[in-house]
Design a protein around this nucleic acid. Structure first.
Lengths: 342, 342
DNA sequence: TCCCACCACTAAACCGGTTTAGTGACGAGC
DNA sequence: GCTCGTCACTAAACCGGTTTAGTGGTGGGA
């Protein structure tokens, strides 16, 4: 009943365990028919090398880590991670690696988790997400000697390579779309400016407005949550001169904002155009359906995993090109109203 | 630079490596002051036992597995897993275990993944989610000798223990709430009847109607997706005698259904009451806000992890009581219209 | 005083692979 | 005929812990 070991296979095939190992990792020094005999014996006994033993002898864990330091509530509605992980997984499975996932309270941004993973030698490298503007995790990882790949736009100054689509062009496309519809007062409800993807979207929004020769519209900093999206929207609609269009940093805030507008009797898109970011499943099924930006998150996961594997296995890695974010126009955006909403 | 090993610590403390191991796993046979000296030496050298080496010598992986066999698209909007995993994680971290996550295409329900995890000895046990009515994974896991805990309602007949709140009472509460509002034609848009949590919700709905002395309302089988929720709703509203209330098996379908109703000019809740299940973050921020059912998913994750740990460590495990699902009444449900919608 | 039990600790085996050093057989070259 | 190199393989060390068997010293009881 107990799993066979390499010794059992060696004995059954009448060779030394070294030979079995050689045959399995097809290295030279084993005659073709001996190799075949060994592999066939192993197959018939149902033997697969124990990753525990392998990990110890090759001094690697054969596992990568992903630490998500966030309160689970904000994770519940995040459309990013499942797809991202699926992409990561598809690469790791092929390479014989496993993914270790930790979801921890946001307290210390997961520092303790990273430290533990490194000290215990649980993983050979980690993926770094949700990067903050002055994130000290890269330094921490450099200190404990854990290779990492930053998931998100490349900041240039980083210790580690970054993989990710720049979200700027997506926001730019949204703004250009709205400008094309005649809007001149385009607001932005952003994520926390302490977070990289909060800041980069805001920057792109501001830059696109400037490029179009428009005044910067009103900006409200929120935190990607529905609650914050709703109150930001209330705030915007209460302005003396409310914007005719709002670009939200994610779908969740946009959807909550849409509900607020509807509840106040503001016609969308007649009086107010609304755009999100993420292309959540629900976005297409709202009333009106939400104009938003879609990204190839699975491909992103694949790219990040590939890059990190190259890093831990000390391979040279090719630069991957990811599909840029793509604007999806739906019913929540329309021509600017003839005169400002009253 | 390279991590110290137990040998380095032993040498530095002037003892054998066995003594260091004893001190760390506080077993008898080490004098208190010797123990203190060893621990202090280890601390000052920053030594932590390598989980690779530990795993090999104790013949356990010190890791549990979670395989999610679903297309990532349907996972994107699933509010369950992040919270669930957070709960699991909180227990595992304390016990020194790690969580191995695999998200794989739905092809073979993850059979290959389970087999691989077992053969390679990657994990000591797995959590089984998304159980199908005639699921063969329990048999597979029994065959490969991998302990498991089924996440979901206990079916009684299973090979392995099950942990999870019964979702029946939640649906029952929704139906009773609607009956109390005077509804007599209450429809259900369910999940796939091939899935346990699809079937159990439908059964609860039918039973609650019968208990209230009502005719079974119309039922549409869907697949938990927004798309399916929308078309099911269209179908229901097209009936000669449309229902005055619809109970959806999850929030996503309910929200899509709500949008369909609004688009058709059906007043919610004036002409049609709508209820979901999950208490998604967005539910409270729709217009009208969605009546739904909330569950303590984090506690659920904790309970499942605890149970599985007890199983792999061969401990007796106490039966945990989970908070039952709780009805959250919001604006999408209201008194039944005086006469059927026309 | 001698014996025994017990305590604190060490030496070595073990987990199951990978990897290095070494060995015997065989053929080629001078 | 002897040496050398190569091939196919084996024996043993090694990864870094845990665990078992064994050992020396001390105290108590007869």
């Amino acid at each position: 009943m107990t799993r066979p070991t390499i010794n059992d296979v060696a004995r059954a095939a009448g060779v030394s365990k070294g030979a079995v190992s050689f045959a399995f990792n097809n290295r030279p020094g084993i005659a073709p028919d001996t190799r075949d005999r060994i592999l066939e014996t192993a197959r018939s006994m149902g033997w697969t090398p124990s990753s525990r033993a392998r990990a110890l002898s090759v001094s690697r864990s054969l596992a990568l880590g992903l630490v998500i330091a966030r309160p689970p509530e904000t994770l519940r509605s995040d459309p990013f991670f499942p797809s991202f992980i699926a992409g990561v997984e598809s690469v790791l499975a092929e390479a014989g690696y496993a993914l270790l996932l930790q979801i921890v309270p946001a307290d210390d941004a997961g520092h303790a988790s990273y430290r533990r993973l490194a000290e215990q030698g649980r993983v050979d490298g980690v993926l770094l997400t949700d990067l903050h503007v002055d994130d000290d995790r890269p330094a921490l990882l450099a200190e404990v000697g854990l290779p990492a790949v930053i998931v998100g736009p490349d900041l240039g100054e980083a210790f580690w390579p970054a993989v990710g689509v720049d979200d700027g062009p997506g926001i730019t496309a949204v703004v250009e779309h709205l400008v094309g519809l005649g809007h001149t007062s385009i607001a932005h409800v952003g994520g926390p400016s302490a977070m990289v993807h909060g800041r980069s979207r805001r920057t792109a929004w501001a830059a696109a407005l400037e490029a179009a020769g428009l005044e910067p519209g009103p900006f409200v900093e929120a935190d990607f949550s529905a609650e914050a999206g709703a109150s930001a929207t209330t705030h915007l609609l209460d302005l003396a001169e409310p914007p005719t269009a709002v670009v939200y940093a994610n779908d969740l805030m946009a959807m909550a904002g849409l509900a607020v507008a509807v509840a106040r009797g503001v016609d969308v898109p007649g009086q107010l155009s609304i755009a999100g970011y993420d292309d959540t499943e629900l976005a297409a099924h709202l009333q009106p359906p939400l104009t938003t930006v879609t990204t190839d998150v699975i491909g992103w996961g694949r790219a990040a995993a590939t890059r990190l594997l190259d890093l831990v296995e000390q391979r040279q890695s090719a630069d991957v090109r990811l599909d840029p974010p793509r604007l999806v126009v739906r019913g929540s955006t329309g021509p600017a109203p003839a005169r400002p909403t009253t």
